[in-house]
Amino acid sequence: MKTVLYSLLLVSALAAAESGTVIRKTDLRDKPFLDAKVLAPVATDTQVDIRGRKGAWMEVRLPNGQQGWIKLLNVRTSSGQTSSSAALSNVLRTGSSGKTVTTGVKGLTAEQINNASPNPAEVDRMNGYSVSGNEAKIQALNYGLKAMGVTPITPSNGNNTEEQQNPNMRRR
């Protein structure tokens, strides 16, 4: 009986493939490029299955089964009813004791941080793993990385307009 329950949990975990919601009208393309062929228009609020990611693009499957690429930023994911895999594995673990199926992962809590005894020896250990800039550079080049020039983009908080931040401006 238990085995059946765990199998069901595992199956539902696998079935709950990553999904997302399209937040603005866009086009489904056959390749992850702007000049790639348009396969179909995608309406706002379309639910998609996420198949993979590449660069600024996401490979998705539409509800009608059509598959292709849209921009990553056009999609938002949500937790839905599923829990994280850690919580799930914890459910399985605690479940095997036959006690409970609720999340009992003991995380790093605010309380633990507040009540911690300092461990300076561990800071020394951390220091021991550090690498020099030169070593990191040689390694990075070995793995195909190169430093790039990037035109600076000024950060901004996209969630609040100036008006929302400063109510006085509304009166103007």
Binding site: E18, G55, L72, T77, M148
Partner: peptide
Amino acid sequence: KAGYNPYAMVSVLQLLGRVNPADST
């Protein structure tokens, strides 16, 4: 600047967006 795909940050945030906020982790 370090030669990585910067949109991998979007993937990380989408990953965080999938975690149930009620999850203690």
